[in-house]
């Protein structure tokens, strides 16, 4: 028997918004430690790794580890039927082929049940090694989303270069080029508005804008985003989901022209 209950359905809705553009379907691995999801997009260029810890739920029970393959478009249809302040309970029997989502309205006067067929997904799991990154940038998530959106108008790829002076995002395309430079700022009153750079050595990497734009769909989950970069390893874009877990996106760099 698996049962997980969240008093606010809003955060789950946001999580779905954050992954459903990259993934058509995904396996939710439920264990005593929580709900985990790891999946690559179709192109195998990016990967989503989601962790919702069991102690972040208002009620959590998982007698046996189960993997639930779900179609994310269907799941998001179901969650569209729920209000943000509804309580959501996700239920499944061991070895079940359906999952039940139950939404209870705040005053308990309305209870809706949705049953969804589960899918058998044969997904590849990647072993992600722990890495000491050359630079770790923390910045307001809305700012990062804005930069990605703005610069993606000019070119397909975004160059992120991090030095001790700051981070530079740049792109160039047919109309010309664009540059945005962000310097470190500390804002003690509002920590979520500060930009911090933890730099071991300078790094410059190029990424495809469109993936970054998909990642920034997670912006409503967290006021801050963390970008971790090292030469020759995928970029990690992490959003912490307060009290519940995190969502991490991994993105392989673009092939440099001289590599071909």
């Amino acid at each position: 028997m698996f049962e997980a209950r969240l008093v606010s359905c809003a955060v789950f809705k946001k999580v779905l918004e954050a992954i459903k553009e990259l993934l058509n379907e995904a396996s939710f691995d439920c264990s005593e430690s929580g709900i985990q999801l790891q999946a690559m997009d179709i192109s195998h260029v990016s990967l989503v790794s989601l962790m919702l810890k069991s102690n972040g739920f208002d009620k959590y029970r998982c007698d046996r580890n189960i993997t639930m393959g779900m179609n994310l478009a269907s799941m998001s249809k179901i969650f569209k039927c729920a209000n943000n302040d509804d309580t959501v309970t996700i239920k499944a029997q061991d070895d079940a082929d359906i999952v039940t989502f139950m939404f209870e309205s705040k005053k308990q006067e309305k209870i809706s049940d949705y049953e969804m067929k589960l899918m058998n997904l044969d997904q590849e799991h990647l072993g992600i090694p722990e890495t000491d990154f050359s630079c770790v940038i923390k910045m307001p998530s809305a700012e990062f989303a804005r930069i990605c959106r703005d610069l993606s108008q000019f070119g397909e790829s975004l160059v992120i270069s991090c030095t001790k002076e700051g981070v530079r995002f740049s792109t160039n395309g047919d109309i010309g080029n664009a540059n945005i430079k962000i310097a470190q700022t500390s804002n003690f009153d509002k920590e979520e508005e500060s930009v911090t750079i933890d730099l071991q050595e300078p790094v410059t990497l190029t990424f495809a804008c469109q993936y970054l734009n998909h990642f920034t769909k997670a912006t409503p989950l967290s006021p801050q985003v963390q970008l971790s970069m090292s030469d020759n390893v995928p970029l990690v874009v992490e959003y912490v989901i307060p009290d519940l877990g995190h969502i991490r996106y991994y993105l392989a760099p673009k092939i440099e022209e001289d590599e071909n």
Binding site: M40, S43, H44, V45, S46, L47, E124, L126, G127, I128, P129, A208, V233, P234, Y250, L251, A252, P253, K254, I255
Partner: peptide
């Protein structure tokens, strides 16, 4: 024109 994640992990 993009590396794949499976090249790294």
């Amino acid at each position: 024109n993009n590396h794949k994640l499976t090249d790294y992990f």
